[in-house]
Structures are given as C-alpha cells and as structure tokens.
Design a binder for these strands. Structure first.
Lengths: 365, 365
DNA sequence: TTGTAAGCGTTATCAT
DNA sequence: ATGATAACGCTTACAA
C-alpha cells in the first residue's frame, strides 16, 4: 500500500482525473478523453464536455507530467541542460542570451521549460554518470556548453531521445544541433574590408582548431578569394596563428605588418577574447588609430570589459535567434519531422573601426 | 492497451528493472530495493546486491524519472512564474538577476526548475483564468512581478499549494514572500549622511504609497530620529512628495533648499527612476557638484541609462540573494517547516556622491 | 456516446 | 532476506 497521500510533499490536494470525474458524474476515462483534447476523434456529448471542463476548472485540475509521460504521452515540457553553470555570477558565461529566444519560442509553441540545474555547484554534476538521464522527464531537451559528457549524450541520442545542441557539434553522430554561420558572417566582414579598398588583410587567430575558429578562417579565405584586385600577390602570411596573443601581437609587430603594406587586421572572437584584446592593445600602443591609420575588425562580439571602447566592426552572434531555432528544431524532432537548416545567420555590425585604407582604395603600400 | 512502445518518444530500448531482475535472477522488487539505495534499511544479501548491480551495469539500466516520480509522489521540480515577460529584450525588466540565486539554491537543494512561459507573448497569458494552475505541476512555485492575478494566486494558496512570492506582498493573506529590507537599508544610507555631519536632509519621493516607498521613508525617518544633533529643528519638510519629479525638482528648487540649509538630498528608487533622475539633473543644472556642494544619495540602484554617471551612494537590492532566500523558504514550506525571516538585507553602496557638508560637520547654514 | 480495464516503470507494503 | 502485489495518475484499446 502506498503511503498516506496527505504526507506526500507537494501534492496536497492536487486533484486528479478521478476526482474531476466524480464531480462531473462521468468516468475517469471520459475526463481523460475530454481533457486530453480527444485526439482519437471520439464523439462526445457537448454536455459531457462542458461538465468535465467545469469540474476540472473548479478543482484546478492539472495533469501530472510524470504520469502523462509514463503513459507515453507528452508533457509539453522542454528541457534545458547546460554543461556550464546555468546562471553563473560571471554573466559572460551565462546562457541567458540564448534563453531569451528559447523561452519566447517555447512559449509560442506552448511548451514550458525545465531548467535542469545540472552543473551548478551543489547539484548533481554533469559529469556524474546518469546525471543527464534526468532530462528524460521532458519531451525533449536542449543542450549547451563547451564540454559535453559525450558518452551520456550519445546514449540519450542512441535511445532516440530528442536532443538538440546549441552550437555546432558534429562529433556526436546523430546529435541534432543549431549553430551560427561563422563562415558567412566572417566572409561578410572581410568583404566589407575589401569593398572599402583594403588589399592586404591579416587574420589573427588563436592556435587551436575549434570548429568556431576553423569556420571563421574559412570565411576569411572565401571572401579574399572572391575579391577583385591584387589580393593574391605574394606577401606575408595572411593568417597568423598565435598561442599567446598578448606576447606575440605587440606594437612592434603591428608596425612591422603595416610597414609591409597591411591596412586591415581581423581578429577572431574566442572565449577569452585574447586575440582581439591583444590586437586592440597593440594598435593603440603603436600609436595608431582605427580607422584612421588601420582598419580593425572582429569576427564576433567584443568581450564585456571592452564594451566601453569603440564598437568594433564585426558581427554579432544572434544568441536569441539561435535559442529560438533550437526550440524549433527540437519541436520538429518531436513531431517526427526532418531537420531544417541548422545554421543561423549572424548580424553584421558596422561598428566604427573600419574605413578606407590610408592611402586610398587599392593601395598596397 | 498502450501503443506499441517503440513508438513512444524517448523510450526506445531502455531496459527496465524487470529485465535487470530477470538477468540477475531476482524479483523486480529486489532490483528496486537494491538500486533505490535501500532507504528502508532492509537487509539484503551482499550476493544479491552484487548480482543486481552487475546485471544493471550490463544492460545499462537507467531508472525512468517519470515512473520514479509518479511512484514517489514528488517531482523535485520548483516552478518559477513571472507576471511580467519572463525574458524580455529589455534586460532591466528581466528576472534574470533573481534567477541566478534561484538556480543556485535550487541546485543545492536538488531541485530542477520549471520556467512557466506564462506571460510571454504567444503563450498563455497570466490573466487567463486557469493559467496559474499549470504551476501545480511543480512541487511548489516562486512568483514574481508587479501585477499579480490575485484571485488565482489566492486559490492556489488556499488549496495549500506551496507558493512564495519574491518581493513583499502582504495583501494576499497567507502567501509567503521574501523581500528586501528597504527600511534597514534606507536607514543605513541616511545614517551614513548624518555620520558625515549632515543635519538637514531631504527625501524626495514620488507620490504613491507602494510598500517599497513607504518602507524607504520609514527607514529615512528612523535614521533621522536616531541621529544626534539639531535634527528636529524647525525647517522645511524633510520629506517631499511629488507626482511629477521632472517638473517639481528643478534647479531653482534645489538652490532654494540649499539656501535653507539643506546639505543632502536623498531620492527613492522607483520603476522609472524619476525622482533620482530629476534630482540628479536639477543639481547639475543648479551648477552644484556632488559631493562638493551637496551630498546625494539614492535609496536603491540607479537606472541603467545613468550607469555611466558617478556611482550614487545608496544600496543595492540583493536580487540573487532574494532568489536564493525564496527557494529556501519554498523548500522549507515543502518540508512543512515554519517560515523564517522574510527580509533580506541590502548591501550598502558607498558610491561617490556623498561627503561632509560644505561648511563642515554640523553646519546648519 | 461512455465505461472498463490494461498497462507505463517505479516505490512501498505487506506476506513469506 | 526476498517476492507478490497494490498503488502512483494517466492514456488508450476495446467492450458496452
């Protein structure tokens, strides 16, 4: 026998279908039928429907999500699981910007959200085996964060659990994801520079091979390949990799590159913003002004602590749009539909660090 | 008969306790007992335990949270319902700062969060009858926002549903709440001024009787009453109410008050920040500098658009702490415990708009 | 048109 | 020390 129900926490007086049925003078099945939207298209007396609705409203009936799920129906719950602290004090690592879109789209589609407090201190760590299984309570789940517990996620996916990762994640076969189109966005920024007349453009990137970095370089190269003029002329490498931007990107280095005819620098955005930060500082230290002496562009958004500085030309990752796209993809998955285009366009940000090259368009030195 | 299980989303091929039992050669009950941690302290053969664990690992058994929660009659879900748009684009109206604390504390207590997309555009509006009933899905729920659908909330509370409002809300009898201690915080700010030597201090408040305003005035008066010196000397009213701060708080007005011996102005924080904004502008327009000529304090935090200006002396509402306190109160409610202290202390913000009165401490003109 | 009954995968209460 | 067995609240085939 189950424990006395009044001693069960969180359930005091929560009405069930049986009680609604009693009040309405019908069977519990009928209540389920009426309240469940009658998917089977079974004929029901309008009278009965009305009485059931009235009774349900009077009692404040709400279906139990667990029971619903157990009975193989759906919850109208979408999970959100972050592998980094969900609401960290450091805002820049928060997933709030995504949540803006997730929440809006979820609302639009009639879903509530379950925030799995996965990785916060005190809660179950995402690393713990089985930590991810909690998400099965929801109809489907959104995942985000840098470090994914691959095994667990793979398992979930293999089991056919609807999961969508926010951010490109192709190493997990079969995992659906939505991501920002860094290639196109980067190309657009560089094209902006070539359109202004720049011919010698340098990309400063950090020394790792994350997809986000690779994509940006690809966009950079694409735009250069498509530009008119003496772009392919011999000269210094157009892409500079550095494991330690602060040490390598110095005022002297910038002066040297400018001396070689470089008129524009492009930095990739990373976690730390190291490349941009270093470039920014080095240009200033070299006594150069952007966009007067050189043009500067950032393939992404500036770190928060540089918010006071001049808005860099670049692009913004449409976090809210990504969140919304993720929800759309997830609900499509739930409906058994095919996945759509996973890439979301980034918005070009004109900023004010770019202009024509000092010597006029097309100048190479 | 239920639908073929392979068509049930998220459930394909997941082994259940029954299968583990079969493999281990025990009953399903025993599996539950062993895997469930044996809370009842029932004696079990080490052999049996080992066999069950082995079988579970071999099959990759993972308990179904829905089933678990259905049987256990709780779901470890805490609801969050906001009466204003949950994730509005305008960050200043978002409840994110509260969520930081809510999420951390919830995680610490082993709860996940359900974000009811109640008031967002597209979702069910909070005004709709029955919209609030969705929260019954969670073991308990946090509410926040200015405009509460009283009837629905009252009903929830009357039903014994564990609910906590973030922000003082005494008009709903029996509704638990946590709020910021504006009285103490305001008193501290004013005491800071009297300690500096100010004796003629004016409070500028808007003309409504919201609890938040009343509390601040009370703190203001408390501090003045407790200060040494000729504070009670006759003079202009120490509290000024205005329905239109921008119109009433002018440069001329400020000059007149200063002429009467006022050395410090205090404004309350409101939604619009109107009082502070007006005071700030008027003092500047009067050609006065804070803290050189007058001291200025704000009973709260400055509006976002004044973030660039000098940090006003005042206090900060500890939103994260409030969220955490709300969660603690809610879980206490769930455990059937008494409610604790509902007031959370605000942090004093030194700022840089206060200093000694121009003529030196104690000067009255 | 409505009701009966069989699950869904657990947990908890009994008997053995 | 273990195993039937009855809930938990719901959905859904099927009988009436």
């Amino acid at each position: 026998m189950a424990e006395n129900r009044s001693s069960k926490p969180g359930r005091r007086g929560r009405p069930r279908q049986a009680e609604v049925a009693r009040l309405a003078g019908v069977s519990q099945t009928t209540v389920s039928l009426v309240l469940g939207g009658n998917k089977q298209g079974i004929a029901l007396h309008e009278d009965t429907r009305a009485r059931v609705f009235a009774a349900a409203r009077e009692l404040g009936y709400v279906p139990d999500p667990a029971a619903r799920r157990l009975a193989a129906a759906r919850n109208n719950l979408l999970g959100v699981f972050s592998f980094t602290a969900t609401f960290p004090t450091a805002v820049e690592h928060s997933y709030y910007p995504f949540l803006v879109g997730v929440e809006q789209e979820a609302a639009a589609q009639g879903y509530d959200l379950v925030l799995f407090t996965g990785s916060s201190s005190g809660g179950a760590q995402a690393g713990e085996p089985g930590a991810l299984d909690r998400v099965r309570l929801a109809d489907g789940c959104l995942f985000l964060g840098r470090h994914v517990p691959e095994d667990q996620l793979r398992r979930l996916v293999a089991d056919g659990y609807p999961a969508v990762h926010i951010g490109r994640r192709e190493e997990l076969d079969g995992l659906a994801w939505v991501g920002a189109d860094y290639v196109a966005a980067s190309a657009e920024v560089v094209r902006h520079l070539t359109d202004l007349g720049h011919r010698r453009i340098l990309l400063v990137r950090e020394d790792d091979d994350a997809p986000a970095s690779t994509d940006r370089e690809r966009g950079f190269r694409t735009a250069l390949a498509g530009a008119a003029g003496p772009l392919s002329a011999a000269g210094p490498a157009r892409v500079v990799r550095t494991a330690d931007p602060a040490a390598d990107i110095t005022a002297a280095w910038v002066r040297a590159r400018v001396g070689e005819g470089v008129t524009a620098f492009v930095a990739e955005e990373t976690d730390t913003g190291g490349a941009w930060r270093a470039l920014h500082a080095a240009v200033a230290a070299a006594g150069l002004d952007a966009p007067r002496d050189v043009s500067l562009a950032l393939l992404g958004s500036p770190p928060a602590d540089l918010a006071g500085a001049r808005q860099p030309t670049g692009f913004d990752i449409p976090r809210a749009a990504l969140g919304a796209a993720a929800v759309r993809l997830l609900t499509a998955l739930l409906a058994g539909e095919e996945r759509a285009e996973p890439l979301v366009a980034c918005g070009f940000r004109p900023g004010s660090t770019t202009g024509p090259p000092p010597g006029g368009p097309g100048t190479t030195v």
